[in-house]
Amino acid sequence: MAEHVSLVVNGVPREVDVEPRRLLVQLLREDLDLTGTHIACDTSQCGACTVTLDGKSVKSCTVLAVQADGANVTTIEGMATADGLHPLQAAFWENHGLQCGFCTPGMIMSAADLLARTTDPTDDEIRHAIAGNFCRCTGYQNIVTAIRAAATTVRAGAAG
């Protein structure tokens, strides 16, 4: 039996009828065509499917769409604004925080959860915050640098 799900995705109210077994990541990718959220391991280990649900990072391959009913979801497509890239996106670009880019949307959404908790994270805190996101190219060094740079931008913005 189909369940009706109402949620706000990247600021836009959406109404979708789904099978109860539909995963949040399928709803995003297949029903809403938001394919920036990636599926890799599909076993809640790699973090490529990370989005924020009411501001907190979750692995959308391990959340049922029906569990997100009424929630506010942000995906990588919701990070940039009309004014330009989100500070995290800009910092990943500037600092070469990616090679193939497959893990990047999940990395950025995990980093968004971190920056919501603290805008002055230590490198240890950054590494701890992305422990649930696997990158098979970079060795993480530039990802950490990028998140640190984004935090600096966010702090400067808050101060300005």
Binding site: S44, L53, S57, V58, K59, T62, L114, A129, G132
Partner: peptide, 12 residues
Amino acid sequence: LPNIGDVQVRNR
């Protein structure tokens, strides 16, 4: 607690 799962798992 800080090492159970990862942030995404601890959030849910």
